[in-house]
Every structure is written in structure tokens, then in C-alpha cells.
Amino acid sequence: MKRWFRQRVDSAYERLLSREISGAPTHVAVIQDGNRRYARSQGDDAHEGHRAGAETTERVLEWCQDIGVEELTLYTFSTENFDRPDGQNEALFDLLCEKLHDFADADRVHDNEVCIRAIGETDLLPGRVQDAVAYAERRTRHYDQFVLNIALAYGGRSRLLEATRGVAADVEAGDLEPEDIDIEDIERRLYDRPLRDVDLIIRPAGEERTSNFLPWHANGNEAAVFFCTPYWPEFSKADFLRGIRTYEHRQESWRRTRARRALALLGALSEPELAEARSIVDRFRDSLPSAERPESGDLEAGEFETGDSSRRIAD
């Protein structure tokens, strides 16, 4: 009876969260944390925790597709994980091979045109894992409706370091001038194929840090971050939707801040800058509380309010 009641409550909460969500981030990144701790809590070994976590991963992939997410990146195996006991890693490598083959052959992957890619120092992985990665990438390379990135032997700092070394080598060889270095030069060297900027990072299991995960694409984009307490195998759809809601609140706060800044600066701008500022205020006006929201006619006439005062822009 108690379990039935909890399921009813959870189902109702999911429906409530679904109604509150009006959009979806383009790129979600997940740190799949807590598999081993979950296994210990169940009296199992680490391998069973990873297997249970893999089932959660499949559900999250479906949830992302259901709400319109276009790219999902999973932090699956970091460079630091090589320091774990060989027995644990070998069992995980076997599971990775199994799941990569399963994903590459799954009807839902092909029906939804999911492109599977591995990012990281995959040449450090055992040959059987490299073969499984190559198989999954080859089977799904021509798809572009949804991208599933699997971070394997991954370290964010090491990727940035390699990209920097590549730029330095090109400068030394005379193929690139220092003043011509731009964002695209770095991004081209980070991964074989481009990643979208990260909009939301999700980390379960109670840790409140992003652990060197996609620093260029997440920190540079000021991604929203959602921390929650369930271990990854326990991560529910309600937890996922709460993460999406965190992203929406972050976006709404960003739009409100942009509108307020533009509105406050209108009085100090010269005429050539006014059109751009008015455009920003007009674009994000609906994100402001009604008491702060100017009318379009006021913007065109040069009249607006900031705080308690009313001002007129001199033409």
C-alpha cells in the first residue's frame, strides 16, 4: 500500500512538472555519479551498480527525445578512473562493449536517427572498447536528428591542453598568425566533430561540482547546473524534469537581467546606440515583472521608467 501510494504521488508530481515546462535545452550533459555507492547500498558489487546505471541512461535518452533535447553528453569514464582497481574497470569495459553494440543495433536508435559519438582519449582504452566505439559510430554516423556523446577516457583540462598545443604548433610552423587565433581555432582542435554549447549539466548523488566536465562548452556558455541527491541508478523522470525546470529558471533570469540592463542604460546612450538597446528591451520585455515593463510606444518615444523615476531620452 505504501509503495502504491508513493508511485501515485510520484506520477502526479511528474505531471505537474511536465505542465510547468515550456521548452527544452538544446544540449544536456550528465555526470553519471553514484553507481558504486548505489551497489554498496544494495549489498551488490560495483558491476551491478554500473549495470543499473546503464538502464537509467537508456531512460534518460528517451526523456530527452520526448521533450525536444537535441544533444546529450554522458560522462561515462574519466581519465582518473584508470586508477581504480583493474577488476572494476575490466567489468565496466565489458559492460561498455555490450551497451555500445546494443545501442548501435537498437531499433529506437535508428528510428530516431541517433548519432553516437565518443569523445575523449579513446586510444587509451582497451582494444575491445575501441572496436565497440568504432562499431557504434560507424552504424550511426549518417544520422543527425539527435546526438549522443559518450565521454570515455575523458578529461576536460587535457582536451584544452591538447587544443592549445595544436594552436602553438601551427603558430610555430608559420601556418597561423597569433592575432588570427579565434574561438573556432580552439573548437576545431577539441573534438573531431563540433559539440553544441552545453545548456544544462545534471549531476546526481549529492556531489556539487562539475568535475572538469566540458569546461569550454559549459563554463563558457554559463550553463545551468542541477545537483540532486539520488544515485544515478535511482535517478527518476521527476528528477530529470526538475533539472529542465532549473534550466528554464536560469534562462528566464538571464533574459530579465538583459532587459533590466538595457532599460537602465537607455538614458545614457547616444542616438546610434538607442535602436539596439530598445531592441533588447523590446525582445525581453515580457520577462520583466509587470511593474517594470515599458510599453512599446514608450520605447519609441524615448520614455521609460527605471526604479522609481521616469525619464525622457533626448532626440
Rank of each mutant, 00 (worst) to 15 (best):
W4P: 00
Q7K: 14
A12N: 10
L16H: 12
E20N: 11
P25H: 06
Q32K: 10
R37D: 06
A39C: 06
A39R: 05
R40C: 00
S41V: 07
D45R: 12
D45Y: 12
A46L: 09
E48H: 06
G53H: 00
T57K: 01
V60E: 00
E62P: 02
C64F: 13
Q65A: 09
L72P: 00
T79S: 15
N81G: 04
D83H: 04
R84L: 01
G87P: 04
N89P: 02
A91N: 01
L92I: 03
D94Y: 03
L95F: 03
K99H: 04
D102A: 15
D102Y: 10
F103C: 07
A106R: 13
R108Y: 14
H110E: 07
D111C: 03
N112M: 01
V114F: 03
C115K: 02
I116A: 12
R117F: 05
A118E: 06
T122A: 03
D123I: 11
L125A: 12
L125V: 09
R128H: 13
R128N: 10
V129A: 11
D131I: 09
A132T: 02
A132M: 06
V133P: 01
A136N: 08
R141A: 15
H142N: 14
Y143D: 05
V147S: 02
L152A: 08
G155H: 00
G156K: 06
R157W: 11
R157I: 07
L160W: 04
T164E: 04
A169D: 15
G174R: 09
L176V: 10
D180I: 09
D182S: 14
D182E: 14
E187A: 08
E187D: 02
R189Y: 09
D192Q: 13
I202S: 05
I202N: 05
P204D: 06
E207F: 01
T210G: 08
T210M: 13
T210P: 07
N212V: 07
F213D: 01
W216H: 08
N219G: 02
G220A: 10
F226W: 14
C228Q: 01
P230H: 03
P233Y: 06
D239Q: 11
G243Q: 03
I244P: 02
T246M: 13
T246Q: 14
Q251P: 01
S253P: 00
S253T: 14
W254P: 00
T257A: 15
R258Y: 01
G267I: 03
A268G: 07
L288C: 13
A291G: 07
E292M: 06
L299E: 01
T306G: 00
G307K: 08
G307P: 06
S309V: 13
R312P: 03
I313Y: 15
